[in-house]
Amino acid sequence: MLIQRVVTALVLLPALLALVWFAPTSAVFAVFALAGALIAWEWSGLMRLPSPALRQGYAAAVGLILVLAWFTPLRAQALVWLLVPAALWWLLVPLLFRGFPGNLQRRPIPTLPMGLLGMLLVVATILSLAWVHALPGGPLKLLYVFFLVFAADTGAFLAGRSFGRRKLAPAISPGKTVEGAIGGIALCAAWALTGGVYAFGVAGTGLWWLLGLSLFVAAGSIVGDLAESMFKRVSGIKDSGSLLPGHGGLLDRVDSILAAAPLMVLGLIVTGL
């Protein structure tokens, strides 16, 4: 399993870096939109849709929405309209963690709201990633966002393995600890003060805004990971799919980005960074 994870990462990471660094934004969006349709397919498994045809239809609908969103002249406005409800979801979903699993066992989220939520999160994320890429110096800034999420995950793993004692959300993800989360956020702070300064060219007050935003986004990425784990437990599945050997499904790898990307873009717009 570990060898599969390493091999998959060694294949995907250079491809991601090359795409972000060398491809135009339209090509980046096209690849990410395809990934978005695959994520929607896996999300439909969390919805427990009863047939492959319905799951395919859901994935196709999300893909169509992404295409329409890209070509609409109101794309920038549409993104802002999506960012606000997406951010509200990530701010409020921790309220579900405290009562889990009893709360969602007694009152599971109906299929239609679950489907609309998946559409909102996937479309907001893909448009957010393309928005960052289209900025001046966008490829570097987008890589900063990706590596911010990687830092949160890596720091949490290392700190949790070395110092983890108190469970963060034992009913949702027993392996995650409070110490791990602190370690992940600490590594993100170091990344913001190094890579962030270079990617965004900030100093003085701008640096503090970027640091605060990065820590907020890092915390959001942890929430995104926990939220997907919560939905998987409700649905009775271990992995969202089997697309990535050793990693599970694509949704399993990008759950943190579903939270981080919209929160980052909304923060960049609000702070003017």
Rank of each mutant, 00 (worst) to 15 (best):
D239S: 07
S242I: 10
L213T: 14
V254Q: 13
L251V: 01
S221T: 14
W208L: 15
R253C: 12
G248C: 14
G204Y: 11
V202T: 09
R253D: 14
V223T: 01
L250T: 01
S221R: 05
A218H: 08
G246A: 09
D252P: 02
M230N: 11
L243R: 03
L243P: 01
G241C: 04
W208I: 00
S214K: 13
V254C: 02
A199T: 06
V197K: 08
I222Q: 15
S229T: 01
L213M: 15
S229M: 06
G212H: 12
A218R: 12
W209R: 11
L250C: 09
A199K: 08
S235L: 00
A227I: 05
V254E: 00
L244C: 07
L211A: 13
L211R: 09
A203D: 15
V197I: 15
D239F: 04
L207T: 15
L251P: 04
F231N: 03
V223Q: 03
A227G: 02
R233N: 12
S242G: 11
L213I: 03
D252I: 05
D225V: 03
L244I: 10
K232L: 12
K232S: 12
L226Y: 11
V223P: 00
D239Y: 00
G241Q: 13
K232Q: 07
I237Y: 10
F231A: 14
G195C: 10
L243D: 06
L213P: 08
S235D: 04
W209H: 08
G204I: 11
T205I: 14
S240H: 10
S214Q: 03
G201P: 14
G212W: 12
R253I: 09
V197A: 15
G248F: 04
L250A: 09
V254G: 02
S214G: 12
V217C: 14
G204N: 11
L250E: 10
L211Q: 02
T205V: 01
G248Q: 05
G236K: 07
F231G: 02
D225W: 03
A227L: 01
S229Q: 06
G206P: 09
W208T: 02
L251T: 05
I237Q: 05
L251F: 00
S240E: 08
F200E: 04
D255R: 03
G249N: 14
G246P: 03
H247S: 10
S221M: 12
F216R: 01
V197F: 10
R253G: 01
V234K: 15
L251M: 05
T205H: 07
F200N: 05
L210H: 11
G236W: 12
L211K: 00
G248K: 15
G206Y: 03
A227N: 00
K238E: 10
A219I: 09
L213D: 10
G206V: 08
R233S: 11
D239I: 02
G249T: 12
D239N: 03
A218S: 15
L207P: 00
D255W: 04
D239G: 00
W208F: 15
G196Y: 10
A219D: 06
G206K: 12
A227C: 13
S229C: 13
D239P: 01
A199P: 07
V217T: 13
G224S: 10
V202Y: 04
S242Y: 06
S221W: 11
G220N: 04
L250I: 14
G241E: 06
W208Q: 02
G248P: 11
